[in-house]
Design a binder for these strands. Structure first.
Length: 626
RNA sequence: GCUCAUGUAGCUCAGAGGUAGAGCGCGUCCUUGGUAAGGACGAGGUCGCGGGUUCAAUUCCCGCCAUGAGCUCCA
């Protein structure tokens, strides 16, 4: 697996774009500057990444953003010196000798060897040649390629410093990772920095607070979102939208408790296998009392829960076991299949504290979950149905910026359960379905769940992080573990295949990305407040209230601003609240029984009768127009 | 979970070893104004929580909690 990844990066290096080549070269310029400032620096890897580059360094001095100007000044000198990037092919022995003398990723020989470079050398396959690059006195182990001269790195900036485990392994030491970016010229760099600033304004955490959509409360707990009334409206609208689609596609909605007996999860295999990422189980009161009387320790209690000696309950980390028990509560003939059970199911997972963030990663979240039980023959059609649903959902919301990932098993690994022949069938069924979908997709070997392959829809957030939203997963494992069966045409029992699917994935995460996608400017059907009525003076408050009543009667979410502000201020406020429609009401409107319509983005839409406006807005809501 | 940073009014932030300030928001009053900010006055803070150093801590030190970035993880 590590080799696989290593190989991939190597491949990518040889296929670098011009910009990546420039950024990769800038990483060397930065390393040169750091080596001048701190000669004891030990460098690991320094590749280009989306938006820039980084270089990992081990250094006694803790680099902070305060050091950036100093490093950048030194980098400017290196750029000004306009050193040539020279490529050298050396023997393995020569490379190792240089590394032993501390000569790699350094400006001269040192007392200490270039430890990380020695280790990286070991990872280069025997049949591959060893490449070094040098600029000035700075030699580095590097497959390249690079730009011609350091003078090409004209427009760069150091962005941030963080830490990263060496080779991405949490058991390895942590290095300081310094991020920078580089562009062909200063204008492009400036534009990039402005884009980043703009993007931050769309951050769902910022907008969520400003717009009063959700709240995280220290007293409630980390990663446990509270949906406020306005966010609640968005969530409810999304659920109603999905429910409508489910009805069309022959799903049955079910409701299940938020907890289940540990035995349920022992059978599914999730306990104690995923114990570390679950809220701890709780024992029955009687059992606790008895163990307490016996002077049992917490450790002993946990062990007893693990072995099943003491029965306990778990907050549900997923909905599948409950749905499986619903399926299994009836006898099924092949004529009944597929059975499609759906639920907006809230699940609880003990995510690592450092992983939590806004709505995108939480400890309680609600999946728009469903489990389909079908015959092996039905699998292909059912997958296509699921993918179609995901595509429909994304389409209605205008989310076109997604990538599709087909996650397959790693044929080398033994972590996967089930019959390889079934895996082949499932992978082929998914591949076939995603092709039919007509979108670009990437195949990712080794990314499958342990119980089956899957297709994920992935969307980026404002700072470029990728998040999995919609997912369709094939599962041969759980039907086996729960010994599910249906009666076939041959009157004999057969094992159904299960599909797990969720178009949104998690409502929390989806809403987070949706907020960023719309910049808080939701389409009318989703907007918490759809229309605001703005009387020009208090003389028209009564007519305004009548207008509000008429809209509310028609099912429109409407409010009025009856305060003493001037109309300009009221408009400003409504726009900042991102209300789609504003109705300006004054003497002229009251006289003619009309309303003046203004849109948050399209400005003045002219005057029309209240009835016409109600008709238009209701139509827009009904169609879920964008 | 790890590394680093941050935590001051509802929000955005300034500040200094001697118990606090701005803008916005909020409240009251004046203004009744035609398409992105009318005016006056006022209320609001145990300076995240708990220890320590000090005559004195919101400020310095330690621990915890929370948030952010990155890494690791994600059934």
């Amino acid at each position: 697996m590590a080799d696989e990844k290593q190989r991939k990066t190597l491949d990518q290096r040889h296929r670098m774009s011009d910009l990546e080549r420039l950024r990769h070269s800038c990483a060397h310029v930065m390393a040169t500057a750091i080596a001048r400032l701190w000669p004891d620096a030990q460098f690991a890897a320094g590749p280009p990444v989306e938006g820039g580059y980084y270089y990992d360094v081990e250094l006694a001095h803790r680099i902070s953003p305060d050091d950036f100007p100093v490093i950048e000044d030194e980098m400017k000198k290196v750029v000004k010196e306009n050193q040539t990037f020279e490529r050298a092919v050396v023997s393995r022995e020569e490379a190792i000798e240089m590394a032993q003398k501390g000569r790699l990723a350094a400006l001269g020989e040192r007392d200490t060897p270039s430890t990380f470079k020695i280790d990286l050398l070991k990872d280069i396959p025997e049949d591959e040649e060893i490449l070094l690059y040098k600029n000035g006195d700075f030699w580095d182990l590097c497959a390249g390629p690079h730009v011609g001269r350091t003078g090409n790195c004209k427009a760069f900036k150091l962005m941030s410093v963080a830490s990263a485990f060496y080779k991405g392994d949490a058991s390895n030491p942590q290095l300081q990772r310094i991020y920078g970016t580089c562009f062909k010229n200063k204008t492009l760099l400036q534009e990039h920095l402005e884009r980043l600033e703009e993007a931050k304004k769309r951050d769902h955490r910022k907008l969520g607070r400003e717009m009063g959509l959700f709240h995280f409360d220290e007293m409630v707990g980390q990663g446990l979102p509270l949906w406020k009334p306005k966010g609640g409206i968005i969530r409810r609208e999304l659920q109603e939208f999905i429910s409508g689609e489910l009805d069309k596609q022959g799903y049955h909605q079910v409701f299940t408790p938020h907890i289940g007996k540990l035995d349920l999860y022992r059978t599914s295999g999730h306990f104690p296998f995923y114990e570390e990422s679950q809220y701890p189980p709780f024992a029955e009161r009687e059992a606790l009392r008895k163990l307490g009387d016996e002077g049992c320790t917490c450790g002993e209690l946990m062990n007893a829960l693990r072995t099943g000696e003491v029965e306990g309950f778990l907050l549900k980390p997923m909905n599948c076991p409950h749905h499986i028990r619903i399926f299994d509560s009836d006898h099924h003939s092949y004529r009944d299949l597929p059975v499609r059970l759906a639920e907006f199911g809230t699940v609880y997972r003990w995510e690592q504290s450092g992983e939590l963030g806004g709505l995108t990663r939480t400890r309680s979240f609600t999946q728009d979950d469903a489990h389909l039980f079908c015959t092996p023959e039905q699998l292909g059609d059912e997958i296509q149905g699921c993918l179609g649903l995901v595509k429909t959902v994304f389409g209605v919301l205008g989310m076109t910026e997604y990538t599709v990932r087909l996650s397959l098993r790693d044929p080398e690994s033994d972590k996967y359960v089930g019959d390889p022949a079934n895996w082949d069938k499932a992978e082929e069924a998914l591949r076939e379905a995603v092709r039919t979908l007509g979108v670009d997709y990437t195949e990712e070997p080794g990314e499958a769940a342990f119980y089956g392959p899957k297709i994920d829809f992935v969307v980026k957030d404002v700072i470029g992080r990728e998040w999995q939203l919609g997912t369709v997963q094939v599962d041969y494992n759980l039907p086996e573990r729960f010994d599910l069966s249906y009666v076939g045409a041959d009157n004999r029992p057969h094992r159904p295949v299960m599909i797990h699917r969720a178009p949104f994935g998690s409502l929390e995460r989806f809403c987070g990305l949706l907020i960023e996608h719309f910049e808080g400017k939701f389409p009318v059907w989703l907007a918490p407040e759809q229309v605001r009525v703005l009387p020009i003076s208090e003389k028209h408050n009564q007519y305004a209230e009548g207008t509000v009543a008429a809209l509310a009667e028609a099912g429109v979410r409407v409010k009025s601003d009856l305060g003493g502000d001037k109309i300009g201020a009221k408009i400003r406020l409504a726009r900042m609240d991102r209300v789609p429609y504003m109705l300006v009401i004054g003497a002229r409107e009251e006289e003619s029984q009309n309303v003046s319509v203004r849109h948050r983005d399209r400005d003045d839409l002219g005057t029309m009768t209240l009835n016409d406006f109600v008709g238009q807005v209701c139509e827009e809501i009904r169609n879920r127009s964008l």
